[in-house]
Amino acid sequence: MKFKKAIALCLSAALSVSLLASCGGNTTSSAGSADASSAGSASAAGSQATTVDYPTKDITVIIPKNPGGGTDVSTRGLLQYMKNYIDGANFVPTNKPDGGGVTGMVETANAKADGYTLGAVTVELAMFPHQGKCTVTYEDYAPICAQIAAPAALIVPADAPYNSLQEFVDYCKENPGTVQMGNSGMGAIWHVATVQMEKEFGIEVKHIPYPNGTADIAAALTGGHIDGTLADPSSFVSQVQAGTLKILAIMADERSVMFPDVPTFKELGYDMTIRSWACVVAPKDTPAEILQILRDAAEKTCNDPEYQEYLMNQGIDPVCIIGDDCYQMMEEDHAMFGEVLAELDV
């Protein structure tokens, strides 16, 4: 009896402490954004001097996706390592996934440009504006770095009768309209990639959408319900390593660090690059000095072997796309998806 009481007591103490801790966490984050305006003016005043005093407060980072998804995990990972390279930085990630991610991206764009509100944006930023789903574009942001830029990989079951991109294309030509290709939703990126491939090679496949993401495609492919997919390979790593699935080619400029034996579409003679990226960005008018601090830190983080290993462990190819390069990537993809989606009519 005494023992039970002791347990109950300890437990309730632990619960109240953890509750307090979580409440405390929330208040600091909201206080962080509330105080951001005063801190912003302070740092604006400070920026007239040669160095800015940044950061002096918590930095809120709006993640426009659910906790646990690829965007969330890679963004939290980047922040976790990046804070080691900025003195006194404390990032507070906040998930705002409603509106299919648009709300969070819009909120970042409209936030006070003082460096205390950052956000993640995803490749949908280059797609949604053309589909009438979103009013902000890449022009509303000052990018810091892309933490992920996963290329489309052509993945098929290991026992499929084709072993190269060419053989796959030939097979599709012999069997028009019957090869079932999984995608992550019509009008979403991997569907666009598959349509691009159809156009490039003059083939016709059957599009099967799996709207809840690539994990479902992996299950369908492993279970033998579909014939292939063009998707980010990270969800398929364990099946590829176990030899139940194989990757025929990837749509990237350079070979993947994780799958060095897989050829790119480019080296096979087809200039196609479709990547699913997520970037950490600041609102566009953020002071240059602050952007510089963040970009320098991001660059050091990207070259940190521990961080690279962290990404590789999760099936993500480490990339180092900083600042202006990142802006250029967003700009190019915006133009590319504009053309493709206009033809696609979704």
Partner: peptide
């Protein structure tokens, strides 16, 4: 929300909030 099978928007009434469906 966005109909993932066709990419079209359904019953969103032009609002951003409803794009991802009711939470």
């Amino acid at each position: 929300g966005i109909d993932a099978m066709s990419g079209q928007m359904r019953m969103t009434f032009g609002t951003t909030y409803l794009l991802g469906g009711l939470s």
